[in-house]
Computed example of a mutant assay.
Amino acid sequence: MGETWQIRRPRRGVPRSTTPNLRGMTRAELGDWLTREFGAPRFRADQVFAWLHARRVDEFEAMTNLPKAERAALGERASVERLGVDTVQRAADGTRKLRLRTADGEAIESVLIPNDERGFTQCISSQVGCALDCRFCATASLGFTRNLDTWEIVDQVARARELLTADARSEGARWIPRVTNVVYMGMGEPLHNFNQVRRSIDILTDDAGDAIAGRRITVSTSGLVPAIERFAREGLGLEVGLAVSLNATTDAVRDQVMPINRRWNISTLLAAVREVPTSRRRRVTFEYVLLSDVNDTDADARRLVALLREFRCHVNVIPFNPHPHAPFRRPSDRRVGAFVEVLRGAGVQCWLRTPRGDDIQAACGQLAADA
């Protein structure tokens, strides 16, 4: 099982600047750095952190409650570099897709999806390309360039919030919609970039910054079992949600759709998920992308019920979002409805995810591939 598939290696490492980007430090790390570099008082970290993540300033000179000499010194010994906004596309259903540029010129994607709370769920990326090669995913066609640094993950949310603010003001809206939920389901396998994702969660949930509740953050995985085991050991399941991209009910089909299954098959994957601690308010999510004539029969639905019966979970059924980089088709609405009916009839907590943003290439990786 282990000889037929390997995780892709990155083409290069994360770029390292001569000065650290303070956007990628947790508040505790920022405090340690400021004390070490400047002998600054501990409250200085609270001030700088709030300027970066609550007010989202672009330069140290804007941090007006810091002494002028200290602002100048920070400018010499640290960075607050941002992602560039390359393209913003808007769909008829309100979905917005951002193509962002890293400092070394790479294209990454983030998607804003309207939710029922007059806010948005943001799907963010964790890698440039992806280390895995799921057959239905447009990102897989890009190969794997590198992991994203912590600040590059966090700044996707900041850029999205700035976009929503600018849009609301230009439209004369009475209120500015917020990013209420964050899902690590964009480009890349989040658990393959575990350390940076972990740190970004600490930053995004900090009350002095974006203050996104942990219960509103979900980390997705294609089935990277050793990282799921670490997720369990470190108790992350008590802080944020875990979504497992399953997409098949037999190893034969999953081997073809998701080659990672040749390394860690369904039973091994579910054994790892079984050990993830969850809070009373959270369930494990299983993602199931429906592919016409591949994994969408009533028999598949019944096998899915049997596989997941023991878990306190819910299932997201996602009709495939067609794109030219994969040979699959979206099932008919009738077939999708029949599949969902089998799950619900068996008592499985199930949501049907309506495809969003078809008119703006919202399948993950499409916009970056065009770049």
Score class of each variant (00 low, 15 high):
R353Y: 05
V273Q: 02
R42H: 07
A272I: 00
E59C: 06
L307G: 08
A140C: 13
R312W: 06
V182Q: 00
V225F: 02
R280Y: 12
V80L: 02
L98W: 08
F38A: 15
A271E: 09
R42K: 10
H314V: 13
V57H: 03
S79N: 15
A54K: 07
W175A: 04
D133Y: 14
R146F: 07
E109F: 05
P324Y: 10
A232R: 09
E162G: 04
D167L: 07
V48D: 00
T218M: 03
L291V: 12
R198T: 07
A306V: 13
V340I: 14
E189N: 00
H323E: 06
A213E: 15
I360G: 09
Y288V: 15
F320G: 03
I108D: 07
A213S: 15
D333W: 08
T139S: 08
R27G: 00
R353Q: 05
P67T: 07
A369D: 11
P322D: 09
E152R: 00
D167A: 13
P190Y: 01
G223V: 15
T4C: 14
E275Q: 03
S200T: 02
L238N: 13
I266L: 11
Q89F: 14
F339G: 00
E189R: 01
P327T: 08
D255F: 08
R353V: 04
